[in-house]
Design a protein around this nucleic acid. Structure first.
Lengths: 213, 213
DNA sequence: ATCTGGAACTAAACGGTGTTCCGTCCCGTA
DNA sequence: TACGGGACGGAACACCGTTTAGTTCCAGAT
């Protein structure tokens, strides 16, 4: 029965979300479960395997947040909703987001397990699909959809990452505005000329330039 | 005399570059210096302060790699060289690059020391200056130079970060090509229309599309 | 020349970590 | 009823950061 394994994982997730990676120790885990540390090794080979399962949980939560974008009715709406879901997840669950993009060696493993790498590729594929259908709809310019999605993903992850680290001295509301503005600026370089104009127009209408001097 | 302090720092840098963060332990540091661990506390308050000095070293190396761009003769050349310097540093010294963008809590500190945060802002300011002079030269579109540089920085850091983590399944040469292509695509969204056209033309001339079926 | 103070070090220890080994209990099954 | 195996606890090993107390040694002042 893997009932206890589930409890360990749930406890490890709680511990990680509240205390960070260093907070997830086998002994503290055991303490919270009313057990001694060696007992955990009945259910998990070692700490590394526990952390790998926490990462898997993070990926599942992340994927769920993204896949809700498929409820959108048009390629454009699905792409926009995917972007919104991405940002929402990154801001609502900073620690989970960071776990998705942490280097394996910080988890104490030389390489990520294959299935976790596959989850990362799955997310990437989701983006490629969103891009491709926007290309088919004439919204994004032609070209390898993987290349376009790479540019978009890199941009989004970079901004979020800089914000989480604290290199950007902004509050969350300001960051949301900057993220949107920056995304629109970047997307105009990836869109068809007509759609780029439309994007600029919509953004200008929604965000009138404030007077300052 | 801070001779020993310098030796400790040099040894910590070596240790970090070869073994990673976890490899930098006070005991191993002491072993390599032919000394016992408590002796280190004569020269450094604790491990956190040692690591902070390693981060400072990383920043100095990074800044040096960037500031060489000022040898360029035109705003455009200085911006391009800065981008090349950024990528070169990130690829040549992955561990040092990662140290610049690591979250404080992974270093065991609640917040970065003020002077280190200031070094990060200094690098940012360098980018803002490169952008501003390109705007003055009519190469980049008008607008807050901080906003433009944020878009560019986010994009660059995001791509490098994804590559370092291993989410991008490419060798280094492929990544360099993808990075350049992606940067050009993004820059066309930030440039004046004339310069965007020129950019596209130059990139197309340097990178003829390969035939594939 | 002797005394003194302080810098630099060592040894030992405390409490923490991941992990292993071994003994023990307990429960389902033959 | 006997057995086997899963689940656990206790003790231990080797490591970690850090503190305390004691030692060595040398420069400078008396």
């Amino acid at each position: 029965m893997s009932d206890q394994r589930d409890k360990i994982l749930a406890c490890a997730c709680d511990l990680y979300l509240s205390e960070g990676l260093e907070g997830v120790s086998m002994r503290e885990l055991a303490r919270r479960l009313g057990v001694t540390a060696p007992a955990l090794y009945r259910h998990y080979e070692n700490r590394e395997h526990v952390l790998a399962d926490v990462v898997r949980s993070a990926y599942r939560e992340f994927a769920a947040s993204l896949y809700r974008a498929l409820e959108g009715g048009t390629p454009r709406e699905r792409l926009v909703r995917a972007g919104e879901g991405y940002l929402a997840f990154a801001l609502r669950h900073p620690r989970w987001y960071q776990l998705l993009f942490i280097s394996p060696e910080q988890l104490g493993m030389p390489r990520l397990p294959d299935d976790i790498e596959a989850m990362g590729c799955g997310v990437h594929q989701f983006w490629v699909d969103r891009v491709r259908e926007c290309q088919d709809a004439g919204i994004l310019s032609a070209g390898d959809p993987m290349e376009l999605s790479l540019t978009m993903w890199g941009h989004a992850h970079g901004l979020v990452s800089l914000y989480h680290i604290g290199h950007l001295r902004m509050d969350e509301a300001t960051f949301r505005r900057e993220f949107l503005r920056s995304a629109v600026a970047m997307m105009t370089g990836l869109s068809t000329p007509e759609f780029a104009n439309m994007l600029r127009g919509e953004y200008a209408a929604d965000h009138p330039v404030e007077a300052h001097g």
